[in-house]
Structures are given as C-alpha cells and as structure tokens.
Design a protein around this nucleic acid. Structure first.
Length: 271
DNA sequence: CCGACAACCTGACGGC
DNA sequence: TGCCGTCAGGTTGTCG
C-alpha cells in the first residue's frame, strides 16, 4: 500500500517509539526480503541509539548514533506493527528498544527491503542518487515537469510513476493528482500544456499533504498495542471508484490499464 | 526512447 | 467447502 503519505505516516509513528531510544535487540527471521538483509544488520544496530527518523521518497530512514542509517522500503505489503500480541507468520524483522517496546516489520509479499548505509554517504546511495526531487519540499514545479516531459510520447500517468521525475508518487496519488489538475492520464506527457503542468505541480503536493493529514490523525491511536503503522482509510476522488459518480460532474469514473496497472479517471473532467 | 510484458511473492475476493 | 482466476498501493529487467 505504501506510497509517500503512508511511509511518512509510518515514520512519524516509528518516531514515537524509537526516537532517542537504544536498540536492545534486532532479529531477522529469514535471510531476505526483495534482497538479502545486510549480514551485519544485527551487530551494527544492536546497542545503537536512534537519533532521528526521516523519509526519502518511499524509503523510511532510521539514523543512529553509530553513524549508520537503516533504510526500509515497504514494497507493496509492508507495515510496521507496534507491540504486537504475537509473532506473525510474515514478521521478518523484529526490534526491541531499551524501554521494552517492540516493532515487527511485516511484509507478506516480501517486495520490501532493508539496507544499512553510512549516514554521511546517504546521498551517494545509488537508489537515492537516481531519485527526482521531493514533491513536498517544493522541488516540483511546472518548469521541472515541462523539462522532464519534453518530447516524451509516453502517457503522462506513466511518467508520474517514474521516481526519477517525482520521488514518492505511486499509482493512487498519480491518479488523484491528475484528476485534480484535470489532465487525461492517457495524454502524451510532452503534449500537456504548460498551464496544466503548473496545475499538476500544485496538485501533487496537495493530494500528498491531504493524505498525510488523514494518516496523521490516526497516529494518536498508536499508544494502543498491536497497532499497524501506515494503514489508514482515505476518501479518494477517482482511485478504486470505477463506475461511481465523479464528485465534480456526476459522470462515471472509468478504469483503464496503463503499463499493466489500473488507472482511474473521469473522462469528462480530465482532458 | 517506447510500450508491452514478466518477474519477484502472498493473500483476498468473486464466481462456480 | 474448495478450486480457479484475477487483482493488489512497487521495483527492476527484458524484448522487439
């Protein structure tokens, strides 16, 4: 599930449990997710104090006083469980803090990942080097989109999913942003007008911030044990609303396939 | 560069 | 109840 807002919400939740705490124990229950866990993950994290947490695109960052940053990606099905009642079948990484709080990284499909990188070298980490600007840091404007889309005949929706262009957008919020900017997702990226691109650059941080706000409001429940971070329900305008009424024109929301994934849009409003 | 497709995995859900 | 097909919010790679 996790796109940028879900990861941001997860990081804020982890902060409540981890920030300033020492890692008492870290255990991996298998050797890998999408790729192998770092072999020395346990040794390097055990005894370390968590100084701060952060996020880059859809990656969560756990910075320690040992000069290491643990980077996690939740893939399609990953989530952190807080003080779970039992050890789940798909709980692959377990952490216990000096306060006795427990975190389980659950990921049934195992498309996620965990890496360990020297904090000072984070910007050189290959996966980060390739990322485009953070949409919530003002890095996306009409000019940037214009440059990146120039001459591209690929559908604008597909390019929005390219992490080199906008870091952190996924299928849901790409659909939602295009709806707000009233752009047809099938349109060739290079042929979207500049005013539409300006609107898109505004819509992207808007839909992300709205979702973070919705997710943030669930964080107060976390004190309760057995909570799962990053999963919250949000009312979408188009995503997963095939056949339902457009909230603007009352027309019917359509679903099409692009790049093997579902795109939802309003053919009347988005042109 | 493009679009199409497959691969990595498991679980949920609908139809029969 | 079970079997089967389809789908799922991500990333990475191949092919023509």
């Amino acid at each position: 599930m996790p796109e940028l807002p879900e990861v941001e919400t997860t990081v804020r939740g982890l902060e409540l449990v981890l920030k300033g705490r020492r890692i008492r124990r870290l255990e991996t229950r298998r050797a890998d997710l999408r790729r192998a866990f770092p072999k020395d993950l346990g040794q390097r994290m055990t005894g370390a104090r968590v100084m701060s947490l952060g996020r880059r695109a859809k990656y969560g960052l756990v910075n320690t006083d040992c000069g290491d940053t643990m980077i996690f990606h939740l893939g399609m099905s990953g989530a952190w469980r807080i003080d779970p009642h039992e050890l789940g079948k798909h709980d692959h990484l377990l952490i216990e803090t000096d306060e006795g709080r427990r975190l389980h990284l659950r990921d049934p499909r195992r498309f996620g990942s965990v890496d360990l990188v020297a904090t000072a070298e984070l910007s050189e980490w290959p996966a980060f080097k390739a990322l485009g600007p953070e949409p919530l840091d003002g890095g996306i404007d009409g000019k940037w989109l214009k440059e990146r889309f120039a001459g591209r005949s690929a559908a604008v929706k597909l390019l929005l999913l390219d992490q080199r262009i906008v870091a952190g957008l996924g299928n849901i919020y790409a659909c939602e942003a295009l709806y707000r900017a009233r752009i047809d997702p099938r349109k060739a990226a290079g042929k979207v007008s500049r005013p539409k691109l300006d609107a898109l650059a505004v819509a992207i941080p808007e839909v992300l911030n709205d979702a973070i706000r919705a997710g943030g409001s669930t964080l107060k429940d976390f004190a309760a044990p057995d909570g799962e971070l990053g999963y919250f329900s949000k009312q979408f305008d188009v995503y997963d609303r095939e056949g339902e009424a457009c909230r603007t024109c009352s027309g019917t929301i359509k679903r099409i396939a692009q790049g093997g994934r579902s795109t939802f849009f309003c053919p009347t409003c988005q042109r």
